[in-house]
Computed example of a mutant assay.
Amino acid sequence: MTSVKTIEKIDAREIRRKLGLNQQQFWSALGVTQSGGSRYESGRNMPKPVRELLRLVHVEQVDIKSIKRDDWEVVEYLKAQEPELFKSLKKSARNHAKKAA
């Protein structure tokens, strides 16, 4: 079982403050306006795509500018058509990252 953090339990304001970012800096990395981000921080329901972007960018530290559409298509293909190969590659990548750290 993986230990992926569920973003519903994570406070966006708390993450932003821990990162030392103002609302403009924090939310613009997700393509969200400062006023929209402020509403989410004040309790407005955050749509799932925004929650996922928040998780990827500010929790997992993924540079979404580096993700290319064709890269994503390969990942989706492997997950759907070659799940065992996908799992093996994912495990190898994690082991490589641990050794590099």
Score class of each variant (00 low, 15 high):
7 I>K: 03
7 I>M: 10
7 I>N: 06
10 I>D: 07
13 R>M: 02
14 E>R: 10
14 E>T: 13
15 I>H: 01
18 K>P: 00
18 K>V: 00
18 K>F: 03
20 G>D: 09
22 N>R: 08
22 N>Q: 06
22 N>V: 12
22 N>E: 07
24 Q>W: 03
25 Q>H: 11
26 F>W: 08
27 W>C: 03
28 S>V: 05
29 A>D: 12
30 L>Y: 01
31 G>K: 04
33 T>I: 08
34 Q>H: 07
37 G>I: 01
41 E>N: 08
41 E>Y: 03
44 R>S: 11
46 M>K: 10
47 P>D: 02
48 K>M: 15
50 V>H: 08
53 L>G: 08
58 H>C: 04
59 V>L: 15
63 D>Y: 00
63 D>N: 10
64 I>D: 06
65 K>W: 01
65 K>E: 03
68 K>N: 09
68 K>V: 09
69 R>C: 07
70 D>G: 06
71 D>N: 12
72 W>V: 04
74 V>D: 14
75 V>A: 04
76 E>Q: 15
77 Y>K: 14
77 Y>P: 05
79 K>V: 10
81 Q>M: 12
81 Q>N: 14
83 P>D: 05
84 E>G: 05
85 L>R: 12
88 S>Y: 15
88 S>G: 13
89 L>T: 06
89 L>G: 05
90 K>W: 05
91 K>P: 00
93 A>S: 13
93 A>I: 09
94 R>Y: 12
96 H>W: 15
99 K>M: 09
100 A>Q: 14
101 A>S: 09
